[in-house]
């Protein structure tokens, strides 16, 4: 690689970093603007919008609502995803590839179509739109990601570990809970946080399956449709910071997994 192309590529790289970060930084800055009008330049600054977010009981309750949905759907995804991974990993049987394909299916369906199909299916089952419907849709959507991460981790579990447990008298259930599950811990943390972020930030499924109470992205969306305001910036910034902190924590957990055990 010549020197010039290398310099060119580093420029493209840093331009890309700027492209990714500048819009978000501007959004954060705008949340400190002491005016109701969104737009540059910012002449005076205030913290009122942020204080307002934590005082606004609607925002706080929607925030809790989104959190409950994210945590519950993640727990379901982790349980089902791990179960499917144990079935698919290290075992060959008739129809294995079909089950794997169907497992991955929700991940490749474009968002809007996934939301519409869940909406129609919920109607068939007589499920009302609202919290339960959203939890169910998020859980289904997140299972493929859990399976991919957990299967990758299971593939590195030495057979001797479970065999040793069995030699010591454990049955398959005990050896799963006392050997396999602890081994999967970093993968489960990583996949779990990833699922929570996906659920917390999901718009299209929450929008079509939600009842009267909005989730956080749906609330931001409906506020946006009635006009931009620094209040939205403040809410979005809180979401941004939380997401980033959780994401970094999960990434570190996954990284430790990559380094071996």
């Amino acid at each position: 690689m010549t020197r010039n192309t290398r310099i060119l590529m580093s420029i493209v790289y840093w331009a890309f970093v700027v492209y990714l970060f500048v819009p978000l930084l501007l959004m954060v800055l705008m949340g400190f603007k002491d005016s109701n009008f969104i737009g540059f330049p910012i002449k005076s600054w205030t913290l009122d919008w942020y204080i307002g977010v934590f005082k606004d009981s609607e925002v706080v309750s929607v925030f809790l609502y989104s959190t409950v949905i994210a945590v519950t759907s993640t727990l379901i995804s982790l349980t089902i995803g791990t179960w499917i991974s144990v079935l698919l990993a290290g075992r060959s049987f008739f129809g294995r590839i079909i089950i794997f394909g169907l497992t991955i299916l929700p991940a490749v369906i474009p968002g809007i179509i996934s939301a519409i199909s869940f909406r129609i299916f919920a109607n068939l089952l007589g499920i009302q739109t609202g919290m339960f419907a959203i939890i169910w849709a998020h859980a289904v959507h997140n299972v493929p990601f859990v399976v991919l991460v957990v299967m990758a981790r299971l593939a590195t579990l030495p057979k001797s570990h479970t065999e040793a447990a069995m030699d010591l008298g454990a049955d398959k259930i005990v050896s799963f809970f006392r050997v396999t599950l602890p081994y999967l811990k970093p993968a489960l943390i990583g996949a779990g946080v990833f699922c929570m972020l996906l659920s917390f930030d999901d718009f299209v499924r929450s929008f079509f399956l939600g009842g009267y109470k909005p989730t956080l992205p749906v609330l931001i969306f409906s506020k946006l449709r009635s006009g931009m305001s620094p209040e939205i910036n403040a809410i979005a910034t809180v979401v941004l910071v939380m997401t980033a902190v959780m994401g970094i924590w999960a990434e570190r957990s996954m990284r430790r997994m990559g380094k071996g055990t």
């Binding site: 009008f37 540059f40 972020l197 930030d201």
Partner: peptide, 26 residues
């Protein structure tokens, strides 16, 4: 570093673009 914006949802990032490109945008 690049992953941080990626974790933030569709709505928040779309809003960031609205602020960047608006008539009174950056």
């Amino acid at each position: 570093m690049l992953l941080i914006p990626f974790w933030v949802g569709e709505i928040v990032r779309t809003y960031a673009i609205m602020i960047l490109l608006g008539n009174t945008g950056a």
